[in-house]
Design a protein around this nucleic acid. Structure first.
Lengths: 147, 147
DNA sequence: TTCTCAAATAAGAATATTACTATTTACATC
DNA sequence: GATGTAAATAGTAATATTCTTATTTGAGAA
């Protein structure tokens, strides 16, 4: 998704295109990685010392709600990434080194949603993250055992 | 799982049966609901004013790691519940009123885990929570629209 | 029972995240 | 372009969670 498309989506949702909001998206877009709220705050504060940390958190929450941004809870704290396509996906997270990989698997809730709906509960979304140990950290562990 | 069983599991894991640890489990057991770290802290502080809030957080994290306790992230903050059987399960959470129901569905990661393992990644666990709107909150919304 | 020591705690500092409120701003309408 | 208004921001306070370190304690060994 291009930078322009993000701004279009915001407009479609009736949200204002504030400078701060644009900058947050641009930062995530340009640095093209996963950043914490504080990372983004520190980056943007270089140009705008008046920026409020709350504004970063508030917008990240908003952008997450409308699906433009993914919130990834890591053992060491939350990071955020831009959504490529407006669709969500899930992650494989190493509990040792915090490395994150995207995965294609998504729990199939279609059957469950119908059931829940018949019980009056409207399913609106889900969070799903897989935790484990990456190959590098596994190798490190083996080496340590040998030592 | 009885109170005694929890203490047995702790012992098996080589963890100390501290007074604070026992009290945290007993509180979750007796009040038999879902409580925030602060709820538990405030309850236990009545009897032990020296109790540290950090101790509550630290033990809830530990108990969650070994599977005796479930951590449930709600929009308004995290709550904890004792695990009935040492097995995990997932929840349906109303984003309006924070009501929580347990659900039987659990994402099937067996195939994915084998694949991940062949790539060097050892899957150790996952988090999964379903969000939506409960029947009561849906009805409230309808009424508001009619008004 | 006493001793020993790693594990756990208390206390407080540090960090993360959210809430509150007065002021500012995007943007639709004129 | 000027104006009205609701949404968004800055600044700050409040709350949630984690970290650091000196002290205490559970539990095994003597």
């Amino acid at each position: 998704m291009s930078k322009h498309d993000y701004l279009k989506v915001l407009k479609e949702k009736g949200l204002k295109l504030t400078v701060q909001r644009r900058k947050i998206i641009e930062t995530l877009h340009q640095l093209d990685g996963r950043m914490s709220a504080r990372d983004i705050y520190q980056e943007l504060q270089k140009k705008n010392p008046n920026l409020s940390l709350d504004t970063v958190y508030r917008n990240l929450r908003l952008l997450t709600e409308i699906g433009l941004v993914h919130h990834i809870p890591l053992p060491s704290g939350a990071v955020f990434e831009l959504s490529d396509d407006g669709q969500h996906h899930h992650h494989l997270v190493c509990i040792n080194c915090d490395k994150v990989s995207c995965i294609a698997y998504c729990p199939d809730l279609s059957g469950f949603s119908s059931y829940a709906d018949s019980e009056g509960f409207k399913v609106l979304g889900h969070i799903f993250e897989v935790y484990g140990q990456c190959s590098e950290c596994r190798n490190d562990n083996k080496q340590r055992i040998v030592d």
